[in-house]
Design a protein around this nucleic acid. Sequence first.
DNA 1: TCTGGGGTCCTAGGACCC
DNA 2: TCTGGGGTCCTAGGACCC
Length: 490
Amino acid sequence: MSARPSPCVLHLDLDAFFAAVEQRDKPSLRGRPVVVGGIDGRGVVATASYEARRFGVHSAMATAYARRLLPAGTAYLVPRFEAYRRSSDVVMGLLARLSPLVERVSIDEAYVDLAAGGHDTSPAAVEELAQALRADVVTGTGGLTASVGIGTSKLVAKIASDLRKPDAVVVVPAGEELDLLHPLAVTKLGGVGPATEQKLRTLGVHTVGDLYAVEEATLVRMFGSAHGSGLHRLARALDDRPVVSSRDAKSVSAEDTFPTDLTSVPALHAEIDRLAARVGERLRSGATAGRTVTLKVRRHDFSTATRSATLPQPVDDDAVIAATARRLLALAPTDGGVRLLGVGVSGLSDFVQTELALDEASADDQPALDIEEAEPTEPTEPTEPTEPTEPTEPTEPTEPTEPTEAVTLFGPVADRRWRAGQDVHHDEQGVGWVWGSGRGLVTVRFEGPRTGPGPVRTFRADDPALSAADTPDWRDPDDVPHDEAPPALG
DNA sequence: TCTGGGGTCCTAGGACCC
DNA sequence: TCTGGGGTCCTAGGACCC
């Protein structure tokens, strides 16, 4: 199946969203050009009001350039994301009433699967539904407008919503997709940006209809298999991508462009530390961690380089992320000045960071509940970006006689919030208790004589050792007070 | 004019393993 | 001793989207 038999995919897009919220909240801005975005030297336009667009200003344009185009009396505003979030939530709430299947693409855009909501998907019925939705958006948000497109696929619904913006509804009945698509510029297709447009132009392709006439083999040769055959399909309105309600994040990053280029290493290190702290905090608040740390460097001439290192264990700790990024900085080109630094963590999993062997001292007394305390923060150790897979981990068997202490982690445990010190796990390594905590992941710490292969073992979610039968001692987390000490080891 | 910040996906080459 | 093919992981860069 490559398209649905009736127009049941709805796409909603809020019109000039950031600027519209500002004009709604400040009546003096209504009817005037408004630009929302970075307003200092190196800022870009996030959203321009329709009044500003008449002067040729659009998203992603340098604000400095927009200032030359726009008349006196234009308002230049810094984004107020909390306000936008509130209105966005109102609209998403309206969509949730239509169907259980809503895909929020961004703060101002979403798809809805109307079939999953049990609606009559005849063209007349969905038109009526969309008009009612549009009216609800206006009243629910205090005057914001939305454009709605409905079609047999995401591709068609999105193009339809864009067709008569602002404040419009367009329904494309099944069978009329190609009539809609073929006169349009190829750049209207999602995934066709400036680079693809340029290449297609060399084939004499300007419209979707032109693209339709090109052999798939030609497109694959030019654009690679995924993009090439994707273009071939889009030109035929072949699009069966499902509406998906939520997806797990695959990476977390933070970046900053500096007012003036940085040249000194201490200044770059200070920025790395700040970025790493932002990333670490977001990882921890999302109860996730990742193994790959990436540093992004944009130089004075806008050339951009990335350097990355994959660590033996997932990390969410500011200090480890920062130390890794700092050593990546030494491998990156920075000559001539740095205008932007970015720090990211990817390879996210439901596994929290494990610590390697704990120091001997704490092996004897009560276990520490404070993860920070046991952290071997000497970040020189698990992080060797140049030599991949420095086996800090379970290569050689250790002496089975020596009592050592280690942390092992595993997960995920879906939809439960585990708390430190509350649960017990038995396996051949001995007895362990929950040490770290977080939704969907559990850190278990073991103590006692070890027979395992090394100081650290990592269980994966599908490890048979973690089957329910092998973890009979899990208790309901709500039964245990948050601060309770770990159970005594027996 | 001079280019943000948050992401996603794809490609290609090399290493490594079986 | 020579040859090989597939699969996975890692790195770097690029295109694209909102």
